[in-house]
C-alpha cells in the first residue's frame, strides 16, 4: 500500500478550480518532488492534502484512511505534517517553544523526541533559548522541520523549503532533508530548484495547469528532454 495516495483531485479557492485532476502517491521512506511552472498548482496540491484548500472531487488517502477535507489539526493527528513556505516559525517564541508547539496535540512526555531533533540539528540546541525570529533563514528552516518531527510523522510535506534562501544555504537545506529522510520519514516537497530537487528525490512529478504532465524517477526526469527544456534551463 502507498503511504499517501492522491487520486484525481479537483479543487481550489472559491469557485475557481486550480487542480484539474492530479494523481500523486508517496511510498514509505520515499522523497517525492513536485515541480512545475508558476501557477501549475504545486503548492495548491500540498494545501489540498492538508485541508487548507477545498477538494471538490477525487480522494486523498493516508495509510488507507480518507483525509480529504479534514481540518488541519485532524490531519496532524494522522501523522502527517506540513511545513509552509517561508514564515514558518513563531518568531517571538524561543526555539524550544517552537518545537514544543509541534507536539501540541501530544499529552505524553516528548523529551526524547526533543533530544532527537537536537541531535539531528545541533545548531538548534545552542540557540534553544533564543527567539526563533532572531535566527538565520537556514536555521529557521531547521526549526520548522524539527517542529514537524516532534510528532514522529510518517510523512512531511515541505512547501518550497529553499524559497528566499541564499544559494550557499540551499545545499544545507537539501542535506537536512536527506537527514530527516534518513530517520525513515517520507518527504513530499514542492521545489523551485527543480534540478537539485530531482537529483535527490526518488521520484518526481511534473505538473502543468493543475494536471499531471510527467511522472518518473528523479533521474529519468532529469534526462527527459521536454522537462529539461521546460524547467531546467536546457
Amino acid at each position: 500500500m502507498s503511504l499517501l495516495q492522491v487520486d484525481q483531485i479537483r479543487g481550489g479557492y472559491g469557485d475557481v478550480d486550480i487542480l484539474n485532476g492530479v494523481d500523486i502517491r508517496v511510498e514509505p521512506g520515499e522523497i517525492v518532488a513536485i515541480i512545475g511552472p508558476n501557477g501549475a498548482g504545486k503548492s495548491t496540491v500540498m494545501k489540498a492534502v492538508f485541508g487548507l484548500v477545498k477538494v471538490r472531487e477525487g480522494s486523498i488517502t493516508y495509510r488507507d484512511k480518507e483525509i480529504a477535507n479534514l481540518r488541519p489539526d485532524q490531519i496532524v493527528r494522522q501523522g502527517l505534517c506540513y511545513v509552509p513556505q517561508e514564515k514558518n516559525v513563531f518568531p517571538t517564541l524561543t526555539v524550544e517553544e517552537n518545537l514544543e508547539m509541534g507536539a501540541f496535540i501530544r499529552n505524553d512526555d516528548f523529551s526524547q523526541d526533543l533530544e532527537k531533533v537536537y541531535e539531528l540539528f545541533p545548531a538548534l540546541y545552542e540557540k534553544r533559548r533564543q527567539p526563533a525570529g532572531a535566527l538565520s533563514g537556514g536555521q529557521r528552516q531547521m526549526v520548522a522541520m524539527g517542529r514537524a518531527l516532534m510528532l514522529n510523522p510518517g510523512l512531511i510535506l515541505l512547501d518550497e523549503p529553499t524559497a528566499g534562501l541564499a544559494p550557499a544555504i540551499v545545499d544545507l537545506i537539501f542535506q537536512n532533508i536527506n537527514k530527516v529522510n534518513g530517520l525513515g520519514v517520507s518527504i513530499m516537497m514542492v521545489e523551485q530548484n527543480a534540478k537539485q530537487a530531482l537529483r535527490m528525490c526518488h521520484r518526481g512529478y511534473v505538473l502543468t495547469t493543475g494536471r499531471n504532465r510527467h511522472h518518473d524517477t528523479g533521474e529519468n526526469l532529469l534526462n527527459n528532454r521536454e522537462v529539461a527544456e521546460m524547467f531546467l534551463g536546457g
Partner: peptide, 22 residues
C-alpha cells in the same frame, strides 16, 4: 502549553493551525 500556544497564535495564526494547535 496553552499560554505558549496563545503566543504562537498571536505570532502567526495560520502556522498555528497547520501545526495542529486546536
Amino acid at each position: 502549553k496553552t499560554g505558549k500556544a496563545m503566543r504562537a497564535m498571536s505570532d502567526n495564526a495560520d502556522l498555528a493551525q497547520v501545526t495542529g494547535i486546536e
